[in-house]
Design a binder for these strands. Structure first.
Lengths: 158, 158
DNA sequence: GTAAGATAGTCAACGTGGTTGACGAAATAG
DNA sequence: CTATTTCGTCAACCACGTTGACTATCTTAC
């Protein structure tokens, strides 16, 4: 009476989820590099997305990302240097410095969205569309509601 | 002729994979903290696993983890301080310093494996066993072969 | 109108995890 | 015996995160 299925060790699940995430992100950035955005790091795409079309402030960005305002400010500094974000004074509040996506940042964001669409289509081609939606539904069911925190480096490393 | 299914934006897939990974790892470490291993960080479990029962050297550990030997050495230093690893001289080669898992490290490793089994069983309870195996199969199909690199902080942040 | 409190941004110091370059000590190849 | 390779470490640096302290500004209350 051998079991027909080999046992699936529990630690395989997180490894496969990380591998899937990493594969998608690596494919994204390989294509972004071909399209002129080689400097963009995985973290930066999430930050640009969090800044959004309307712009925001460093403090609010930190809240959206689940990190301190100081950490958000330093990350904005780097993306300003790289040409993806810009800071402008807020005429209605001299304390605030609005963070906005530059045209180059908007280009990277637009290309990222397109590439993600193509990657999802590739997954649907290989696995079948219903398997991809099932995967999304199942992960949505199991993942905690607070999954929008992007403090990955500090979270993972400590 | 409206499409019966709402469109699934492509960027949802990586977010869901990350959320699933993070949920599992957070649940693991919440339980590990309850069982006396509060100091263990997500990264550390992977490092302990990579050291393995037979022990290894810092250079080989770096190769297994996809990081430099210097980075591996520094991580080993921290885990030695925390009591999870120990260094012993290699009698057959005075250059080498064997890295071994301590009893405390082995305890953490054993508990981690048990907790992962329970977490996978929870997923199977909620989603159905066949959905979990399908998820694993699909991710195995899509994930690149080189998914065993654990340089997550540097990879993500740059 | 002014004093008190809340908020935005920055500076400084530090910890963790990563990198490259250089170097001494020990093993191995010729 | 010499030349080369390998292992570990040191030093300097960068990216990302933290907390604490501080200034400048806006808001609220009296």
């Amino acid at each position: 009476m051998a079991s027909p299925e080999p046992a699936r060790p529990g630690f395989g699940l997180p490894l496969l989820l990380l591998a899937g995430f990493r594969t998608l992100i690596d494919d994204l950035h390989a294509e972004l590099a071909r399209e002129g955005h080689a400097e963009l790091r995985p973290l930066h795409g999430f930050v640009l997305q969090a800044v959004g079309a309307d712009g925001t402030t460093a403090t609010e960005l930190g809240q959206r990302l689940g990190i301190s305002k100081q950490a958000a400010g330093k990350t904005v500094d780097r993306l300003v240097t790289a040409g993806y974000l810009e800071r402008v004074d807020d005429p209605s509040d001299a304390r605030r410095r609005l963070v906005r996506v530059t045209p180059r940042g908007a280009d990277g964001l637009r290309r990222s969205a397109e590439i993600f669409e193509r990657l999802r289509a590739q997954w649907a081609d290989t696995l079948g569309p219903e398997r991809v939606t099932a995967l999304e539904d199942d992960l949505h069911t199991m993942a905690s509601a607070n999954w929008f925190r992007l403090d990955v480096p500090g979270w993972f490393g400590g």
